[in-house]
Nucleic acid binder design. Sequence first.
RNA 1: GGCUGGGUAGCUCAGUUGGCAGAGCAAGCGGCUCAUAAUCGCUAGGUCACAGGUUCGAGUCCUGUCCCAGCUACCA
Length: 559
Amino acid sequence: MLDLPERFSITTSIAYANNKPGLHTLYEVIGADALARWYRMCGVPTRFLTGTDEHSINIAQAALDEGRPTREFVDEKVALFKVAEAALGITPDRFIRTTDPDHVRVAQEMVRRAHANGDIYLGTYEGWYCPNEGFRNVTDVVETASGTICPNHPDVPLQWLTERNWFFRLSAYQERLERHFADHPDFVRPEHRRNEMLGFIRGGLEDFSISRERTPGDWGIPFPIREDGSSSEFADGTWDPAAGKIYVWYDALINYITGAGFPDDPAMFARWWPADLHVIGKDIARFHTIFWPAMLWSAGLEAPRKVWVHGWLLAQGERMSKSRGNFLDPIDFVAAFGSDGARYVALREAAFDRDSDVSWDAFTRRYNADLANDFGNFVNRTVSMAGRYLGGERPAPREAAESPLGTAWPAARDLFVAKLEACLLHEALAALWEFVGAGNRFVEVEQPWVIARAVKAGENGAAERLRAVLGDLVEACRLVALAVAPVMPGLAPRVMEQLGYAHEYAADGNGGPPLLDELRWGAHAGQVGMLTAPVPLFPRLEIEAALPGEIPATATGPA
RNA sequence: GGCUGGGUAGCUCAGUUGGCAGAGCAAGCGGCUCAUAAUCGCUAGGUCACAGGUUCGAGUCCUGUCCCAGCUACCA
């Protein structure tokens, strides 16, 4: 069916820990978690890294404005992320924070390597600085009668700042980047994002600054090198403040190799790097597909194998964001749809390869149609009929070739897997739900209740036919619940229990039998088991009871 | 401004090399009774953004126009 990799190393971008998380931020994490779980269940050693980005000047300023220590401020925000991710069933192998001590060491090591390789040099960075947004490009500011202003914050006076910064020689990597894109056509996906990045590279690359002279509250990773090239570390282990801080973007990207074990654990690093997949949003594609490979090459390391660029969640055409206030609180979302339901509707309702308009209404309709009506009811009617007509002993499926569902299954499964591995998670789920539809239609065609009456009437062969039909239905329930387990990890154990099967996977998807073996029609045909009484999996939601069609404004303040 | 996507049913979208406009959801009608008012079937719903052109034939190819989104260098 497919060739599984020998290991799978996947990351998300790290979230900016300045506020509580929105669903639009965790959407990417849900998708990556589903992919990580897929590989874990397939028996592929998997490492899934996600976390938080904490060294930004804005965060330091926000903490300062609240009169609190920056560390306390970010600890609080990170705790909110962890609570929300736990509610969504997110299972990273490491939750990395850029304030983690090992990450601080790795970022400094990367600076030293770039310096040793002649890729960084001292220069001057100057430009308009908006206290709310940082340095603004000349094309982003507006000239007015009262002076130059930032269009987003017209009341805040812009400052012309000059900083002595270290610069990274990105210009030296233009040719290598072009060659890398040519040699690895799948490096950036989807295709149109790759084209954008390629266009940017061909337009000529400028060097970028990787240090800041000063930061609010002295926040950030100490730049490990002084202007004269000497180490900025004092004998007591503290750092010379005059050396400045590492610019937050340079620091943030490096989390991916910290999380892979660089450089303290070479064996671990060799095992997990290069990452197989970075899952990121379209707004940060350039940093991941252009700056980041160059940074790695400068340090003598490999670029990640693939970067998947997803789109945004939109509410009525507008990007969901904390600053706009049109975002969903993941806790509310889980409260309404359940952890599994929330994961499913998020990944099914939004396309993973482009922007998607979402609404509470659409999520509710999707939940009712796909989960309550189609699949939940399919399992319910199957378990109910098998229990009622066969007394609870689990009927075995027929040979695939003798069963319409058994015949249809391989194509549905293969399409599901192909879409999943292509990161088209919404299409993967759609492919699987085509098969759920086939299951429901099969019930109508066979009408087991009619066969059951024939059995009662003593009709010849009716009992055998009833067992066969119900066996096929039970098998269809098993296959769909297992296939969709990476997306709805809590569902599979509940379905398996009702079907009288063991579920041997751990909470994070590790440890069970290879999923592809389990996804064969009739994989457990010989096993005896008892069905339980039917228990509804996804209670139907009343649209009226749900929030109105608008995305509720739950913002607590500016981002 | 330049470059790249897109505009198809009320909503979300699919439409391969040009060959009778499709799916899901929502709506209406009917069937069934195992099931969570569910499910199955049927119906309705379209100036394929607009105007030209090529062609026996255009949602698809070409030209122009309008609209939306993205990219066009350091907030993260």
